[in-house]
Design a protein around this nucleic acid. Sequence first.
DNA 1: TCTTAAGTGAGAGTGGTTCTCACTTGAGGA
DNA 2: TCCTCAAGTGAGAACCACTCTCACTTAAGA
Lengths: 150, 150
Amino acid sequence: MAARPTHSARSTKPAALYGSRRMSIQRTTIATTVQAMQRAFTAEELHRAVTAEAPGIGLATVYRAIGAMQSAGSLVSVGERDGSALLALCARHDHHHHLVCTECGAVVAIDCPIDDATVRAAARSGHLVTDHQIILYGICADCRTQTEGS
Amino acid sequence: MAARPTHSARSTKPAALYGSRRMSIQRTTIATTVQAMQRAFTAEELHRAVTAEAPGIGLATVYRAIGAMQSAGSLVSVGERDGSALLALCARHDHHHHLVCTECGAVVAIDCPIDDATVRAAARSGHLVTDHQIILYGICADCRTQTEGS
DNA sequence: TCTTAAGTGAGAGTGGTTCTCACTTGAGGA
DNA sequence: TCCTCAAGTGAGAACCACTCTCACTTAAGA
């Protein structure tokens, strides 16, 4: 299993995060704000950050932009916090999962730990695994070095 | 990885599903209904099933009973369906996960596929895995034999 | 029986998310 | 440079799963 940052999407153009042709000022602001986010965030946190940048952008607009980015595959849901969906920017399009740092909220892409052996073992019991959903929680490399340094 | 039914709780007394001493008629009805459930269910589905059995039992009572059974560890959340939490009876108290059958909704306990190798590989990238959440979707043994039989 | 705290039903409240509607605006074509 | 039109927007209502409150009931131990 290899772990690498999810964040190459940070350097792509805002428009690339959506699946549509048309780019409004609001969507550009939202995309830029998402790219500036250093960790996983909720829709409400994103709305707060966006309105700090450009007051007047509605919550519904933020939700619509989130939906568009999720459809385009540039934004993924990585669990939840206090009943709200936790979102993160992710440029990887191959099959993978995410490790959410419980210290700082950073999200790291992780290769899928479900291997052939797992699927075969399930098959031995008569079950067929067709899909799965995995979220890993832990402490990221940065937080570990910080903790060990102090 | 071994897979085995989650359902030994089906044969236990209703009172054993809750962590408390006191048993009301409502809680007994709810526990019996849960034990009769052949698959994963939502709170609303349970409420419908319970009121079919004993009309007048309130939704809040069902939610309170679900909370008590979850605290007691006899009922677990195994994902979600249409925005509602998906619940299932489970008697296993060791570390494990669940396979939800996409055909019939049956739930099967599955040993944890996250092994030492996975954790060590994450550690090699500097990350420490402290917790995880896994839901497997697939087709259970019964549904497979049915499909192959027809 | 009595006491008492746990449990109950009804319904209001909460909070995240989605929908509606009238209005605005970006982008492509003439 | 207009014109057209569909995509996008803001405000706020609506939706929905779930929780809380409150007056009342009841199980269980003394």
